[in-house]
Design a binder for these strands. Structure first.
Lengths: 338, 338
DNA sequence: GAGTAGAGACCTTGGCAGGTA
DNA sequence: GTACCTGCCAAGGTCTCTACT
């Protein structure tokens, strides 16, 4: 336990009120007394107890963050940005992991609520009206990130469906005439897929259907064999669009053994810099999302009655090397050696 | 602000003491009263305020963690493990980033101290007696990770010098007769290198000097040109050992354009799974380090006067593909196509 | 005496009314 | 009247002492 203002008061033979005036540079204290108190505080290593202060003020200056895990650079980069932005505003960050389990997520939110964080940034696994009611009942200012809940919550994300649509159109523009969309459930098998993944899928379908492009959606957890079958089934120039970089990277591992087709990921997660060939993907600027989430959360802490708002962060196609124009794909060259 | 025990007391027409007895299953209360209070608590959505509790108990059930950043998977994987282990013990984790600046680190520790975390896990940038005195003066239980301070602190890490020595012997065993050790300063140029990096360097030097193996240590921040020069300077079968995976990956980028030499990294950081060719490296089990750090910190919170202890976590050589036996390196084949 | 409940102190900081020289 | 200081109250949960049935 640290040194308290009471101990300083005893040490200096004054009252706590006087110590308070000295520490906060308030009027009504002799310069001499003030100096003595400040010196004693420094000597004893006094650090104000924000716990006591928050009890009085009803503010802990702490934000809670709930994400799946921190092994995935998607989340750790987001947390990095959140932490830094929060620090600039004088807030600390408490982190809890859901491990992609709705039950854990529930516990995590409750745990943060018990610790009276001033606000919450959640990348939810949970969904449904029960879960949303629970969040609302916590009375915590909440900003949702990455995986949409209902419109009553603030939500920061790229526009998933339009981004997938853009990616699809871009692929078609490169000359591909058949597209396989790989979107297995993220995380535990049998689980419902995340809203963000489904939105991407719908964006994809919208474009291929509108333009009558032959396509397949592969949603098996064990997608690699199915992908091989699908690839063999047509001689049209075929592209594979994945709902997440992780699938694209797994496929890229197989690709190296000689298979040929365009390949595109989704998210532009942190590790891609050193991957060869450079993965074509869609940038999901998680750092920016994290910062905007903090920004919005701070607003909401000020004015808890703001209506839910959707903040759309711009996405961007990262050309990479795995989706060359069909022309160069058909004539094997250095850039298509994947 | 949430519902308080006082409000429950008023609602039920009893005193706060009675509410306390009901909520904590203490004796001295009628079953009937207890049920009524528990029901009221559930109905009103009561969540105990751990701030109040920690004020009286002197425990916040929160651990502080200070690392450089979370973009580097080295730190985010460690934090993942720390958070999970802490959660199992009922602790929350507050995270602060130093951005590899001693000044920020100082602020971070102070900030966590103000928030009265029960203990601290630090991967320090700071060093020197002043910094150590500051940490000791905080009176916080501290476990140091990755970058050694003095023996008065608990320290959890792989044995850096022996690990580098092992790697060096392993390289020699593969037939290489000349080794270049790449150890530029991690982080801001001009900064003193981390203790861990220097320990690795000394482990390397010990072996090459003992076995009279020709070698060079490259410490320039701009190490790539120097490396090219050194590689060209001898016809001995040469290996490059890096003090961190990041350098090895940068070098691997250049390697692909045709250069030939053995290459080895250090740390086995998270993104390596998808890198081709598979990087030969030394496993630094950051998850295990994180868990042990929490374990030790919890012990120290119980008994603050324990003497500083060094916990050594076993390292391991990950063969990969970038350090083939010299024989196969000289006869170009599929496995040496890097 | 045993079972049940209430009143008040305590942890910390900060703010304010009131008191003394 | 001014400069300075004391002491009480608030926040929420916990624990002990006391009192009633």
């Amino acid at each position: 336990m640290g040194v308290t203002s009471k101990e300083i008061a005893q040490f200096c033979g004054v009252s706590r009120g006087t110590v308070d005036r000295a520490l906060h540079d308030k009027p009504g204290i002799r310069a001499e007394t003030r100096t003595a108190i400040l010196q004693a505080a420094a000597e004893l290593g006094y650090v104000p107890d924000l716990i006591g202060r928050s009890l009085v003020r009803g503010r802990t200056m702490t934000l809670g963050v709930v994400v799946f895990n921190l092994k995935n650079p998607y989340f750790s980069q987001m947390l990095d940005a959140i932490t830094e932005r929060a620090r600039q505003a004088g807030y600390a960050v408490m982190i809890m992991l859901s491990g992609q389990s709705a039950e854990n997520e529930f516990q995590a939110v409750r745990s943060l609520q018990e610790r009276r964080v001033d606000g919450l940034i959640v990348h939810p696994v949970g969904c449904g009206t029960d879960y949303e009611a629970f969040l609302h009942k916590s009375r915590l200012p909440v900003v949702v990130v990455g995986n949409r809940l209902s419109a009553s919550f603030d939500f920061v994300s790229i526009a998933n469906a339009p981004a997938a649509a853009d990616a699809t159109r871009w692929i078609i523009g490169r000359g591909y005439r058949r597209i396989l969309f790989v979107a297995p459930p993220l995380g535990k098998p049998g689980q419902v897929n995340l809203a963000a993944q489904l939105e991407r899928q719908s964006g994809f379908l919208q474009v291929v259907q509108a333009q009558a492009v032959p396509h397949r959606v592969i949603i098996q957890a064990d997608y690699l064999p199915e992908l091989q079958v699908q690839l063999a089934e047509s001689s049209l120039p075929t592209a594979v669009l994945c709902s997440s970089d992780v699938f694209a990277l797994e496929i890229l591992d197989v690709w190296r053994s000689g298979n040929r087709a365009g390949l595109m990921g989704f998210d532009h997660t942190g590790w891609l810099k050193y991957i060869h060939p450079r993965l074509t993907t869609v940038d999901n600027p998680v750092g920016e999302i994290g910062r905007q989430a903090v920004e919005r959360l701070l607003e909401r802490i000020q004015k808890p009655d703001l209506p839910g708002q959707e903040l759309v962060v711009p996405h961007q196609i990262i050309p990479g090397e795995t989706m060359p124009p069909v022309a160069s794909l058909l004539i094997p060259g250095p850039s298509s050696s994947c």
